[in-house]
Amino acid sequence: MLQGPFFIPMKRFSLLIILLAVLSCRKENTADNSLSPAYPDYFPAPVYQFNNNTVNKDRFELGKKLFFDPVLSLDSTISCAKCHAQVHAFADHNVSLSAGINGLLGTRNSPSITNMIWSPTFMWDGGVNHIEVFSVAPITNHVEMGESMLSVIRKLNNITAYRTAFKKAYNIDEITDQAMLRALTAYMSMIISAGSKYDEYRQGKTSLSASELDGLNLFRQKCAGCHSEPLFTDYSYKNNGLDSVFNDLGRETITTNSNDRGKFKVPSLRNVELTYPYMHDGRFWSLREVLDHYSNGIVISPSLDASLQHSIPMTIQEKERIIEFLKTLTDWNLVSDQMFNK
Protein backbone atom coordinates (compact mmCIF):
# COMPACT_ATOMS: atom_id res chain seq x y z
CA MET A 1 0.00 0.00 0.00
CA LEU A 2 1.02 3.54 -0.53
CA GLN A 3 2.23 5.31 2.54
CA GLY A 4 3.43 8.77 3.36
CA PRO A 5 2.02 12.23 3.68
CA PHE A 6 0.05 12.14 0.42
CA PHE A 7 -1.66 8.86 1.06
CA ILE A 8 -5.40 9.19 1.30
CA PRO A 9 -7.12 6.34 3.17
CA MET A 10 -9.28 4.16 0.96
CA LYS A 11 -12.61 5.07 2.42
CA ARG A 12 -11.97 8.75 2.16
CA PHE A 13 -10.61 8.31 -1.35
CA SER A 14 -13.79 6.70 -2.59
CA LEU A 15 -15.85 9.36 -0.90
CA LEU A 16 -13.67 11.97 -2.54
CA ILE A 17 -14.30 10.45 -5.96
CA ILE A 18 -18.03 10.48 -5.41
CA LEU A 19 -17.90 14.00 -4.11
CA LEU A 20 -15.90 15.14 -7.15
CA ALA A 21 -18.33 13.41 -9.46
CA VAL A 22 -21.26 15.11 -7.78
CA LEU A 23 -19.59 18.51 -7.80
CA SER A 24 -18.67 18.26 -11.47
CA CYS A 25 -22.29 17.75 -12.33
CA ARG A 26 -23.36 20.85 -10.52
CA LYS A 27 -23.91 24.12 -12.20
CA GLU A 28 -21.77 27.05 -11.24
CA ASN A 29 -22.86 28.91 -8.20
CA THR A 30 -25.24 31.49 -9.56
CA ALA A 31 -25.68 33.58 -6.46
CA ASP A 32 -27.35 36.61 -7.90
CA ASN A 33 -24.89 39.44 -7.57
CA SER A 34 -25.53 40.73 -11.07
CA LEU A 35 -25.85 44.41 -11.77
CA SER A 36 -27.57 46.00 -14.71
CA PRO A 37 -27.80 49.60 -15.79
CA ALA A 38 -30.96 51.38 -14.69
CA TYR A 39 -32.29 54.26 -16.77
CA PRO A 40 -35.62 55.89 -17.61
CA ASP A 41 -37.78 54.68 -20.50
CA TYR A 42 -37.18 57.89 -22.46
CA PHE A 43 -33.48 57.02 -22.78
CA PRO A 44 -32.53 55.24 -26.00
CA ALA A 45 -31.15 51.69 -26.00
CA PRO A 46 -27.49 51.68 -24.92
CA VAL A 47 -24.81 51.27 -27.58
CA TYR A 48 -22.78 48.94 -25.34
CA GLN A 49 -24.42 45.54 -25.22
CA PHE A 50 -22.32 43.97 -22.43
CA ASN A 51 -21.42 41.07 -24.74
CA ASN A 52 -19.07 38.72 -22.87
CA ASN A 53 -19.04 41.19 -19.99
CA THR A 54 -22.22 41.03 -18.00
CA VAL A 55 -21.71 43.13 -14.92
CA ASN A 56 -21.82 41.69 -11.46
CA LYS A 57 -20.71 42.99 -8.11
CA ASP A 58 -17.28 41.32 -8.31
CA ARG A 59 -16.52 42.86 -11.69
CA PHE A 60 -17.86 46.25 -10.66
CA GLU A 61 -15.82 46.30 -7.44
CA LEU A 62 -12.70 45.18 -9.29
CA GLY A 63 -13.21 47.90 -11.89
CA LYS A 64 -13.65 50.44 -9.11
CA LYS A 65 -10.44 49.29 -7.44
CA LEU A 66 -8.58 49.74 -10.73
CA PHE A 67 -10.24 53.11 -11.36
CA PHE A 68 -8.89 54.50 -8.11
CA ASP A 69 -5.47 52.84 -8.30
CA PRO A 70 -2.49 54.92 -9.51
CA VAL A 71 -0.66 51.65 -10.27
CA LEU A 72 -2.09 52.07 -13.77
CA SER A 73 0.30 54.99 -14.36
CA LEU A 74 4.03 54.81 -15.10
CA ASP A 75 5.19 56.20 -11.76
CA SER A 76 2.13 55.26 -9.69
CA THR A 77 1.07 58.88 -9.27
CA ILE A 78 -2.11 59.11 -11.29
CA SER A 79 -5.32 57.13 -11.19
CA CYS A 80 -8.33 57.37 -13.48
CA ALA A 81 -10.20 59.04 -10.63
CA LYS A 82 -7.71 61.90 -10.52
CA CYS A 83 -9.07 63.42 -13.72
CA HIS A 84 -12.54 61.90 -13.50
CA ALA A 85 -13.73 62.97 -10.07
CA GLN A 86 -17.13 61.91 -8.82
CA VAL A 87 -17.79 65.29 -7.15
CA HIS A 88 -17.48 66.86 -10.60
CA ALA A 89 -19.64 64.23 -12.27
CA PHE A 90 -16.50 62.31 -13.23
CA ALA A 91 -14.89 65.18 -15.12
CA ASP A 92 -11.64 67.00 -14.36
CA HIS A 93 -11.77 69.95 -12.03
CA ASN A 94 -9.83 73.04 -11.15
CA VAL A 95 -7.58 72.94 -14.22
CA SER A 96 -8.13 73.80 -17.86
CA LEU A 97 -5.75 71.20 -19.24
CA SER A 98 -5.62 67.92 -17.36
CA ALA A 99 -2.17 67.08 -16.04
CA GLY A 100 -0.55 63.69 -16.48
CA ILE A 101 2.56 62.13 -14.97
CA ASN A 102 5.35 64.58 -14.07
CA GLY A 103 2.84 67.40 -14.46
CA LEU A 104 2.81 67.01 -18.24
CA LEU A 105 0.00 68.85 -19.96
CA GLY A 106 -1.90 67.71 -22.99
CA THR A 107 -4.17 69.92 -25.04
CA ARG A 108 -7.47 68.91 -23.54
CA ASN A 109 -9.66 68.94 -20.45
CA SER A 110 -10.86 65.52 -19.26
CA PRO A 111 -14.55 65.22 -20.04
CA SER A 112 -17.19 63.62 -17.86
CA ILE A 113 -17.45 59.86 -18.25
CA THR A 114 -21.07 59.49 -17.22
CA ASN A 115 -23.54 57.69 -19.50
CA MET A 116 -20.74 56.10 -21.50
CA ILE A 117 -22.84 53.12 -22.57
CA TRP A 118 -24.79 55.43 -24.88
CA SER A 119 -21.75 56.93 -26.53
CA PRO A 120 -20.93 55.61 -30.01
CA THR A 121 -17.36 56.96 -29.77
CA PHE A 122 -15.03 58.22 -27.04
CA MET A 123 -12.58 61.09 -26.52
CA TRP A 124 -13.07 64.69 -27.67
CA ASP A 125 -12.08 63.68 -31.19
CA GLY A 126 -14.03 60.41 -31.23
CA GLY A 127 -10.86 58.43 -31.92
CA VAL A 128 -11.86 55.50 -29.71
CA ASN A 129 -14.63 53.28 -31.03
CA HIS A 130 -15.50 51.04 -28.08
CA ILE A 131 -15.93 51.52 -24.33
CA GLU A 132 -13.79 48.44 -23.59
CA VAL A 133 -10.69 49.86 -25.30
CA PHE A 134 -11.29 53.45 -24.14
CA SER A 135 -9.03 53.04 -21.09
CA VAL A 136 -6.03 52.06 -23.21
CA ALA A 137 -5.81 55.64 -24.47
CA PRO A 138 -5.25 57.47 -21.14
CA ILE A 139 -3.11 54.63 -19.75
CA THR A 140 -0.68 54.70 -22.68
CA ASN A 141 -0.76 58.42 -23.57
CA HIS A 142 2.66 59.91 -22.75
CA VAL A 143 1.16 63.05 -21.25
CA GLU A 144 -1.46 61.17 -19.26
CA MET A 145 -0.59 57.94 -17.42
CA GLY A 146 2.41 57.19 -19.66
CA GLU A 147 2.43 53.44 -19.07
CA SER A 148 2.50 50.45 -21.44
CA MET A 149 -0.25 47.86 -21.31
CA LEU A 150 2.33 45.10 -20.94
CA SER A 151 3.82 46.78 -17.89
CA VAL A 152 0.43 47.45 -16.29
CA ILE A 153 -0.53 43.80 -16.62
CA ARG A 154 2.84 42.69 -15.23
CA LYS A 155 2.41 44.97 -12.23
CA LEU A 156 -1.11 43.74 -11.57
CA ASN A 157 -0.01 40.12 -11.79
CA ASN A 158 2.49 40.83 -9.03
CA ILE A 159 -0.21 42.00 -6.65
CA THR A 160 -1.90 39.13 -4.83
CA ALA A 161 -5.07 41.09 -4.08
CA TYR A 162 -5.59 41.69 -7.79
CA ARG A 163 -4.92 38.07 -8.71
CA THR A 164 -7.57 37.03 -6.20
CA ALA A 165 -10.03 39.65 -7.40
CA PHE A 166 -9.58 38.72 -11.08
CA LYS A 167 -9.96 35.05 -10.25
CA LYS A 168 -13.22 35.83 -8.51
CA ALA A 169 -14.55 38.20 -11.16
CA TYR A 170 -13.36 36.54 -14.36
CA ASN A 171 -12.20 33.10 -13.22
CA ILE A 172 -8.67 33.55 -14.57
CA ASP A 173 -5.38 32.69 -12.90
CA GLU A 174 -3.31 35.07 -14.97
CA ILE A 175 -4.53 38.65 -15.31
CA THR A 176 -4.99 39.73 -18.93
CA ASP A 177 -5.47 43.15 -20.48
CA GLN A 178 -8.83 41.99 -21.80
CA ALA A 179 -10.09 41.21 -18.31
CA MET A 180 -8.64 44.45 -16.91
CA LEU A 181 -10.31 46.52 -19.62
CA ARG A 182 -13.60 44.72 -19.12
CA ALA A 183 -13.45 45.26 -15.37
CA LEU A 184 -12.92 48.99 -15.86
CA THR A 185 -15.83 48.90 -18.31
CA ALA A 186 -17.99 47.13 -15.73
CA TYR A 187 -17.42 50.03 -13.34
CA MET A 188 -17.74 52.82 -15.87
CA SER A 189 -20.82 51.39 -17.52
CA MET A 190 -22.73 51.74 -14.25
CA ILE A 191 -21.97 55.45 -13.93
CA ILE A 192 -25.33 56.55 -15.21
CA SER A 193 -26.68 60.01 -14.70
CA ALA A 194 -30.44 59.94 -14.94
CA GLY A 195 -31.48 61.30 -11.55
CA SER A 196 -31.53 65.06 -12.07
CA LYS A 197 -34.39 67.43 -11.39
CA TYR A 198 -34.96 67.47 -15.17
CA ASP A 199 -35.45 63.67 -15.02
CA GLU A 200 -37.88 63.94 -12.13
CA TYR A 201 -39.74 66.56 -14.16
CA ARG A 202 -39.80 64.25 -17.20
CA GLN A 203 -41.20 61.51 -14.98
CA GLY A 204 -43.86 63.77 -13.50
CA LYS A 205 -42.38 63.58 -10.02
CA THR A 206 -41.65 67.26 -9.72
CA SER A 207 -42.31 70.50 -11.53
CA LEU A 208 -39.88 73.06 -12.82
CA SER A 209 -40.11 76.66 -11.69
CA ALA A 210 -41.45 79.26 -14.12
CA SER A 211 -37.96 80.50 -14.95
CA GLU A 212 -36.57 76.97 -15.29
CA LEU A 213 -39.39 76.19 -17.73
CA ASP A 214 -38.61 79.39 -19.59
CA GLY A 215 -35.02 78.23 -19.72
CA LEU A 216 -36.03 74.81 -21.03
CA ASN A 217 -38.04 76.37 -23.84
CA LEU A 218 -35.19 78.71 -24.73
CA PHE A 219 -32.77 75.79 -24.57
CA ARG A 220 -34.91 73.81 -26.99
CA GLN A 221 -34.93 76.74 -29.42
CA LYS A 222 -31.27 77.68 -29.23
CA CYS A 223 -29.16 74.75 -28.00
CA ALA A 224 -30.98 71.46 -28.54
CA GLY A 225 -29.97 71.31 -32.20
CA CYS A 226 -26.73 69.74 -31.01
CA HIS A 227 -27.36 69.11 -27.31
CA SER A 228 -30.42 66.97 -27.94
CA GLU A 229 -32.48 65.45 -25.13
CA PRO A 230 -32.45 63.24 -23.19
CA LEU A 231 -28.67 62.72 -23.23
CA PHE A 232 -28.07 66.36 -24.17
CA THR A 233 -25.73 65.54 -27.04
CA ASP A 234 -26.18 64.22 -30.55
CA TYR A 235 -22.60 62.83 -30.43
CA SER A 236 -21.68 64.78 -33.57
CA TYR A 237 -18.43 66.70 -34.09
CA LYS A 238 -18.60 70.44 -34.47
CA ASN A 239 -16.33 73.38 -34.89
CA ASN A 240 -18.08 75.73 -32.50
CA GLY A 241 -16.15 78.85 -33.39
CA LEU A 242 -13.49 78.94 -30.70
CA ASP A 243 -10.51 79.61 -32.99
CA SER A 244 -9.41 80.22 -36.54
CA VAL A 245 -5.89 78.92 -35.94
CA PHE A 246 -5.92 75.49 -34.35
CA ASN A 247 -3.24 74.10 -32.07
CA ASP A 248 -5.43 70.99 -31.71
CA LEU A 249 -6.93 69.79 -34.98
CA GLY A 250 -9.59 67.76 -33.14
CA ARG A 251 -11.54 65.38 -35.34
CA GLU A 252 -9.15 66.00 -38.25
CA THR A 253 -6.49 64.14 -36.24
CA ILE A 254 -8.58 61.01 -36.67
CA THR A 255 -10.10 61.44 -40.13
CA THR A 256 -7.21 63.42 -41.75
CA ASN A 257 -9.99 65.36 -43.49
CA SER A 258 -9.47 69.13 -43.38
CA ASN A 259 -13.24 69.61 -43.30
CA ASP A 260 -13.02 68.22 -39.76
CA ARG A 261 -10.48 70.80 -38.62
CA GLY A 262 -11.10 72.06 -35.11
CA LYS A 263 -14.18 69.89 -34.67
CA PHE A 264 -14.77 68.27 -31.29
CA LYS A 265 -17.49 66.01 -30.01
CA VAL A 266 -20.59 67.78 -28.70
CA PRO A 267 -20.41 67.07 -24.96
CA SER A 268 -23.42 66.04 -22.92
CA LEU A 269 -24.75 68.87 -20.77
CA ARG A 270 -25.88 66.60 -18.00
CA ASN A 271 -24.21 67.85 -14.79
CA VAL A 272 -22.79 70.80 -16.71
CA GLU A 273 -22.96 72.91 -13.55
CA LEU A 274 -20.25 70.64 -12.08
CA THR A 275 -18.06 69.85 -15.07
CA TYR A 276 -16.34 73.23 -15.44
CA PRO A 277 -14.08 74.31 -16.99
CA TYR A 278 -15.73 74.10 -20.40
CA MET A 279 -14.74 73.36 -24.00
CA HIS A 280 -12.16 70.75 -25.07
CA ASP A 281 -9.37 72.89 -23.66
CA GLY A 282 -11.17 74.13 -20.56
CA ARG A 283 -10.92 77.78 -21.61
CA PHE A 284 -14.20 78.94 -20.08
CA TRP A 285 -14.81 78.73 -16.37
CA SER A 286 -18.47 79.69 -16.15
CA LEU A 287 -21.64 78.86 -18.03
CA ARG A 288 -22.14 82.58 -18.60
CA GLU A 289 -18.81 82.74 -20.46
CA VAL A 290 -19.94 79.80 -22.61
CA LEU A 291 -23.21 81.47 -23.53
CA ASP A 292 -21.42 84.78 -24.17
CA HIS A 293 -19.20 82.88 -26.59
CA TYR A 294 -22.18 81.59 -28.54
CA SER A 295 -23.90 84.98 -28.65
CA ASN A 296 -20.91 87.26 -29.22
CA GLY A 297 -17.66 85.34 -29.50
CA ILE A 298 -17.94 83.07 -32.53
CA VAL A 299 -14.73 83.03 -34.58
CA ILE A 300 -15.22 82.38 -38.29
CA SER A 301 -13.18 79.62 -39.99
CA PRO A 302 -13.85 77.32 -42.96
CA SER A 303 -15.09 74.37 -40.87
CA LEU A 304 -17.31 76.45 -38.55
CA ASP A 305 -20.66 74.77 -38.00
CA ALA A 306 -23.46 76.12 -40.21
CA SER A 307 -25.71 76.70 -37.21
CA LEU A 308 -23.18 79.14 -35.74
CA GLN A 309 -22.48 81.27 -38.85
CA HIS A 310 -24.62 84.03 -37.37
CA SER A 311 -23.94 83.21 -33.72
CA ILE A 312 -26.82 82.42 -31.37
CA PRO A 313 -28.53 85.67 -30.38
CA MET A 314 -29.48 85.69 -26.70
CA THR A 315 -30.41 88.50 -24.32
CA ILE A 316 -28.86 88.65 -20.86
CA GLN A 317 -32.16 87.55 -19.36
CA GLU A 318 -32.44 84.63 -21.77
CA LYS A 319 -28.95 83.50 -20.80
CA GLU A 320 -29.88 83.62 -17.13
CA ARG A 321 -32.97 81.52 -17.79
CA ILE A 322 -31.01 78.96 -19.81
CA ILE A 323 -28.45 78.68 -17.03
CA GLU A 324 -31.23 78.17 -14.52
CA PHE A 325 -32.50 75.32 -16.64
CA LEU A 326 -29.03 73.83 -17.12
CA LYS A 327 -28.71 73.57 -13.35
CA THR A 328 -31.70 71.22 -13.30
CA LEU A 329 -29.43 68.75 -15.13
CA THR A 330 -27.28 68.28 -12.04
CA ASP A 331 -27.58 64.76 -10.66
CA TRP A 332 -26.89 65.19 -6.95
CA ASN A 333 -27.67 61.53 -6.30
CA LEU A 334 -24.93 60.41 -8.64
CA VAL A 335 -22.21 62.67 -7.28
CA SER A 336 -22.89 61.53 -3.73
CA ASP A 337 -23.60 57.86 -4.43
CA GLN A 338 -21.39 55.75 -2.16
CA MET A 339 -21.53 52.88 -4.63
CA PHE A 340 -18.96 54.65 -6.80
CA ASN A 341 -16.67 55.67 -3.97
CA LYS A 342 -13.48 53.99 -2.95
Binding site: G127, V128, I139, M149, D177, T253
Partner: peptide
Protein backbone atom coordinates in the same frame (compact mmCIF):
# COMPACT_ATOMS: atom_id res chain seq x y z
CA UNK B 1 -4.95 40.65 -30.45
CA UNK B 2 -4.19 41.62 -26.83
CA UNK B 3 -3.19 45.27 -26.45
CA UNK B 4 -0.14 44.07 -24.49
CA UNK B 5 1.37 43.04 -27.83
CA UNK B 6 1.88 46.74 -28.53
CA UNK B 7 0.25 46.51 -31.96
CA UNK B 8 -2.77 48.63 -31.11
CA UNK B 9 -3.48 52.29 -31.74
CA UNK B 10 -5.17 53.57 -28.62
CA UNK B 11 -5.76 57.16 -29.78
CA UNK B 12 -7.52 56.10 -32.97
CA UNK B 13 -8.77 52.60 -32.30
Amino acid sequence: LATTNDMFWSWST
